[in-house]
């Protein structure tokens, strides 16, 4: 059996809506599920991890910006790793599929963190599409 993930107490946050139909709600920060899909969107400047249940409903999401990583010089692979660990520990996954999209620097770190986290992975799928190219440069201007 997989090693048990240490239990995280549920965090409660209260929000007050601004709209006419606003209501006071008291709810947990994330649903805890044991089986789901992890989506990794790895761009060059940010990494977004989204956990859904097998039907596709979003349970939890996290991004490097949310974890506090900001830089205009480079995107850190550590940010991707931290994002992935944050997502998995909050939801308490035990079994998952992984869908990866993007070519950024946080991609490999996030995948490695997911692989090491103890979650049993049934498949890892790369759904990165073919990127668009630019045009051919125009002719030299004749003066």
């Amino acid at each position: 059996m997989t090693k048990a993930i240490p239990k995280i107490g549920s965090r409660k946050k209260v929000r007050i809506g601004l709209r006419r139909n606003a209501r006071f709600s008291l709810r947990k920060s994330a649903r805890r599920i044991t089986k789901g899909i992890i989506h990794v969107q790895a761009s060059f400047n940010n990494t977004i991890i989204t956990v859904t249940d097998p039907q596709g409903r979003v349970v939890f999401w996290s991004s490097a910006g949310t974890c506090g990583f900001k830089s205009s010089r480079k995107a850190s692979p550590y940010a991707g790793q931290r994002t992935a660990v944050d997502a998995i520990r909050t939801v308490g996954l035990q079994r998952a599929e992984v869908m990866v999209k993007g070519a950024g620097s946080g991609r490999d770190a996030a995948l490695r963190a997911i692989a090491k986290s103890g979650v049993r992975l049934s498949c890892i799928r790369d759904v990165t599409p073919m990127p668009h190219n630019g045009c051919r440069p125009p002719k030299k201007r004749r003066l």
Binding site: K13, V14, R15, I16, G17, L18, A22, S25, R27, K28, S29, A30, R31, R57, V58, V59, F60, W61, T66
Partner: peptide
């Protein structure tokens, strides 16, 4: 559980 609450927004 559909919506996630991560920060309190003052109204």
């Amino acid at each position: 559980g559909a919506a996630l609450v991560r920060s309190a927004a003052a109204g």
